[in-house]
């Protein structure tokens, strides 16, 4: 359910009606940004935002810091994995 895809807002075309243009791998489409706009984040501030697009609406801003944290955790898991592998190799060698 719910095909959603990250894209980047490149222009805000109609702040009043919450319309902006988003770029997905070079493809552009007009979308509605009402769901990511509030007092603290007015339409003008949306330019450059990475958002998740679903049926022509920006549904949520992508938190780059959280994405980095997830990737960092995965990297650590990878390192743990490599260490485990090395330990197994050491055990096997004995």
């Amino acid at each position: 359910m719910c095909v959603g895809i990250p894209g980047r807002i490149i222009t805000v075309d109609d702040p009043e009606h919450r319309l902006a243009t988003v770029d997905v791998g070079g493809v552009r489409r007009k979308i509605n940004i009402a769901c990511i706009v509030d007092e603290a984040h007015p339409p003008e501030a949306c330019i450059g935002d990475w958002v998740l697009i679903h049926v022509g609406f920006a549904m949520s801003r992508i938190d780059e810091e959280e994405a980095q944290k997830t990737l960092e955790l995965l990297r650590e898991l990878g390192e743990m994995d490599a260490e485990l592998e090395a330990m197994h190799a050491f055990d096997r060698a004995r």
């Binding site: 895809i5 990250p6 980047r8 997905v24 791998g25 990475w50 992508i62 994405a67 990737l71 995965l74 990297r75 898991l77 990878g78 743990m80 994995d81 490599a82 485990l84 592998e85």
Partner: peptide
């Protein structure tokens, strides 16, 4: 593509699968 390709990385998949197998 940003926020897509990083999350399709086979090396990360391999590590996760090993951790799942162990657990």
């Amino acid at each position: 593509m940003k926020f897509i390709d990083e999350f399709r990385d086979p090396a990360k998949a391999k590590a996760l699968v090993r951790h799942i197998n162990t657990l």
